[in-house]
Design a protein around this nucleic acid. Structure first.
Length: 817
DNA sequence: TACATAGTAGTTTTT
DNA sequence: CTACTATGTA
């Protein structure tokens, strides 16, 4: 089926390539020699190794322009892939800018996923799907898996569906269909993994749905099994460009390799030192292997950095040098020295937040002869999102405007997902997951029992849930209130569905229209009588969904109604509901923000690709950063990825980079003491200035301040001394330690000898003794009257005698010791 | 069926 | 400590 003719018709550019080729190429002037080489080497495989801040987007966009200007390819013959919509948008804008808006658009510039959707819609039938398939998000995916796991009689406790979801994603990332899963993985998920994966894929087909991983997987499979289809695209895409190549997974790699096989005109841009998505299936190996994968390739290194000061670059280089097997780059800059990277230790997380808050305010005013820095130009980059809370709390109390990037996203909010589930049921009745979501929202008196009946009926008749419900009602299978309510819902869905499609028209024969966006569609209905925006309002209204929130008295209800309004407004920008739903499933970013100047708080992952004059990097403690879990799960590989994360963090800074750590932190309500991160030891001391935290009197920690004036050698010693001191200070002063110490006679608790990562569990089983006064969140104060393993019998003053797990008890601080 | 309570688990997350 | 899930009770 092909639609290359259509592509021509629909997507041909208004650019006259030949006309441009005749002129000189002024766009090449602003490039440095390396960038220029990367642009001008158009044929054959090219690997552009682009360090942080070396102008790779510029090189990439110029290359696209050059391809068109020299007449090598038309805009619709260039395949340019990115990972994020943001990157795609930026590239589109910049190409457009350089060409002076002469190009209509590049239909094949987009994210891997967006491009695969487009392709898969054209060839859906080859994957056993209809071209209007739905794209499930991770939430739907998990719910579906839960159903399958439950049906299999598996104990969700021991084998959580989330785990299975991770395993399946892992397989899909490696482009493994169920039949290709290697024998070594057969034991996965209690030996049921492969079977459930098979069931899951079958179920997805029944639902006419795909998950994110499928978009790639299906296309790779189609390319592998349908030579003709592959050949078409190999011919069509004359040049291929890939951004952030270090983040590609196996499936993406195979997809690219298949497409590039013919002409091998593939240009991959990336930086092995910025590969931070290994945990998501990215294979640094892809970029490391490029030269062997594509023999005869040209490698271009972009090493001139236009972003950061020499101190910052040196600090980043020092840290990343600890990794092995790098392709290796040496970043350099013409910039003048600037400030050293600043390092500061704090007593605890709250103090760290306080200090950073003060520092930001000082910098905003302009301090120590430095020009004032706008809040917009400062960022706090954390390893884990839970670190953000300390900053939010602090900034709220001092009234410092901040913005959290990458928090709960608009389209992930409950009310938005509910509303969209309604739209999905109306637009694609096979979408059982959407139906399940809304069948009892708002409450319709349809509980587990009733839903069970609908499921059974649907399965018996081999139809979707909407039809199942209809049959059930027709056979009087559901009486009472629930039945009547269900009737109303089904009637509603039918009515809305009619409004969506417009009045039925006599079926016109031979009128298959190929719509480039959504694939072939048979014309059977007249134009809708109302707009999709109105329809959306009607659906939300008549279903009682809006009413549900209007009647809700909880404080967040008004906000949710506001969000629903926003959702309806967002609909205006789309031609129909389907278009909107697809947009939402692929575009999960949340760009909307009121303009005011604010400090940005985000994770290191979210910061990739961004830059700020002033950057704060808090929480550099072993266990937090590098993350313990990362190291436990992936060992040295995990540690190296953490190190790359540190590299990414430091290289975000243009002028000023401040790294900090806290000796104590409250984690899940318990105090935890940590050593400063090992990455701190890896910072080259010549480029680091150690600051003294305020309010610390003598001993312990002041050493850090003194170190600043000491000789480098001495500094080094003192810095490692700082580790010891911090650990000691913590251990002896934390409430938990005092408690353990008090009881060490009875319990034989010994002093931890290893300094690294000392965790004190105040609520450890062994720390409770008979007769001890304890506190329980719900029951209040009481005395321990019995101990059985980790269960304690406690006589509460108000609540009486209860058996409680020791975790839920806290000893009282007034215990004498 | 719906709500309250007990229990449990708890990175990073471009699409 | 918090946010979610499973269980028990009205």
């Amino acid at each position: 089926m092909s639609s290359f003719d259509e592509m021509d018709a629909f997507e041909s550019a208004s650019l006259s390539a030949r006309a441009m080729a005749a002129r000189p190429a002024p766009y090449l002037d602003g490039l440095n020699p390396a960038q220029r080489a990367a642009v001008e080497q158009m044929d054959g495989p090219v690997l552009m190794l682009a360090g942080a801040g070396t102008g790779k987007t510029k090189a990439l966009t110029t290359r696209i322009v050059h391809l068109m200007a020299t007449g090598r390819a038309r805009p619709n013959e260039v395949l340019a892939v990115t990972f994020t919509n943001k990157a795609a948008r930026e590239m589109k804008n910049r190409v457009g800018q350089m060409l002076g808006q002469q190009v209509e658009g590049m239909p094949w510039l987009g994210t891997f996923h967006a491009i695969c959707v487009k392709l898969l819609r054209r060839h859906a039938e080859l994957a056993g799907l209809k071209s209007n398939f739905t794209i499930l998000d991770t939430d739907d995916q998990l719910r579906l898996l839960k159903q399958l796991v439950a049906a299999d009689g598996i104990d969700d406790k021991r084998w959580p569906a989330r785990m299975l979801s991770g395993i399946i994603d892992g397989w899909k990332n490696r482009a493994l269909t169920p039949d290709k899963v290697p024998a070594a993985d057969a034991g996965a998920y209690n030996h049921r993994g492969v079977a459930l994966y098979t069931q899951y894929q079958t179920r997805l087909k029944e639902l006419n749905a795909v998950d994110f991983g499928d978009l790639l997987l299906h296309m790779v499979t189609i390319f592998q099994t349908h030579e003709d289809v592959l050949a078409q695209y190999q011919r069509w895409f004359k040049y291929i460009l890939v951004d952030e190549y270090q983040d590609t997974n196996v499936a993406q790699y195979l997809w690219l390799r298949l497409l590039a096989q013919g002409h091998k005109n593939i240009c991959c841009v990336g930086d092995d030192d910025q590969s931070i998505y290994g945990w998501r299936g990215a294979e640094v190996g892809n970029i490391l292997r490029f030269e062997t994968d594509f023999p005869g390739s040209h490698v271009v290194r972009l090493e001139q950095n236009y972003r950061s000061t020499p101190h910052i670059l040196a600090a980043a280089s020092g840290v990343i040098a600890g990794n092995e097997g790098r392709l290796g780059k040496t970043l350099w800059t013409e910039a003048t020295e600037g400030e050293k990277v600043r390092l500061i230790g704090h007593w605890d997380g709250e103090e760290e937040a306080r200090w950073i808050g003060d520092e930001i305010e000082a910098m905003q005013r302009g301090t120590r002869g430095m020009d004032p820095i706008d809040l917009d130009r400062m960022a706090i980059l954390v390893r884990a999102s839970h670190q953000m809370r300390a900053f939010e709390d602090r900034f709220l109390t001092i009234g410092l405007p901040y913005r959290v990037i990458g928090g709960p996203r608009f389209y992930e909010r409950m009310e938005i997902r509910d509303a969209m589930a309604y739209f999905r049921v109306v637009t694609s009745p096979d979408d059982d997951l959407a139906f399940e979501r809304i069948v009892n929202t708002p409450k319709r008196g349809l509980g587990d029992k009733a839903q069970q009946k609908i499921q059974v009926t649907a399965r018996e008749h081999g139809v979707n849930l909407v039809e199942g419900a209809r049959i059930l009602l027709a056979h009087d299978g559901l009486g009472g209130k629930g039945g009547a309510q269900l009737r109303r819902l089904i009637d509603g869905i039918d009515r809305w569905n009619k409004m969506l499609r417009g009045p039925a028209m006599p079926v016109q024969t031979d009128s298959e229209v190929l719509d480039d966006e959504s694939g072939p569609a048979r014309v059977e209905y007249g134009p809708p009588e109302i707009s999709h925006v109105e329809l959306a309002e009607i659906i939300l209204d008549e279903s009682g969904y809006t009413g549900m929130w209007q009647n809700d008295k909880t404080p967040e209800a008004p906000g949710r109604l506001e969000n629903l309004k926003e959702l309806v407004k967002a609909l205006e920008q789309f031609e129909n509901l389907q278009g909107f739903l697809e947009h939402v499933s692929l575009i999960m970013d949340n760009e909307s923000d009121d303009g005011g100047a604010k400090v940005s708080i985000m994770t290191l992952h979210a910061a990739k690709g961004l830059e700020f004059p002033a950057v704060f990097l808090p929480g550099w403690e072993d266990g937090l950063f590098p993350s313990q879990r990362s190291m436990d799960e992936s060992g040295i590989k995990g540690l190296e990825e953490e190190r790359r994360l540190a590299y990414v963090g430091i290289t975000r800074a243009e002028e000023l980079c401040t790294i900090s750590f806290a000796a104590n932190r409250r984690v899940f309500g318990q105090w935890q003491s940590s050593m400063p991160s090992r990455f701190i030891d890896e910072l080259p001391e010549d480029h680091v200035e150690v600051l003294t935290p305020p309010g610390l009197y003598g001993g312990g920690y002041g050493a850090a301040g003194m170190a600043a004036t000491a000789s480098p050698k001495m500094q080094d010693m003192m810095r490692s001394d700082l580790h010891e001191k911090a650990a000691e200070a913590n251990v002896y002063n934390s409430p938990g330690w005092r408690r353990l110490q008090a009881r060490s006679g009875q319990r034989g608790v010994s002093q931890p000898s290893e300094a690294r990562n000392v965790v004190i569990d105040m609520n450890a089983v062994s720390s409770f003794v008979m007769g001890e006064r304890v506190f329980h969140q719900k029951f209040g104060y009481g005395a321990v009257i019995g101990i059985e393993g980790d269960k304690l019998e406690v006589d509460f003053e108000k609540a009486g005698i209860k058996k409680v797990v020791s975790r839920f008890l806290t000893g009282c601080d007034d215990v004498p010791f």
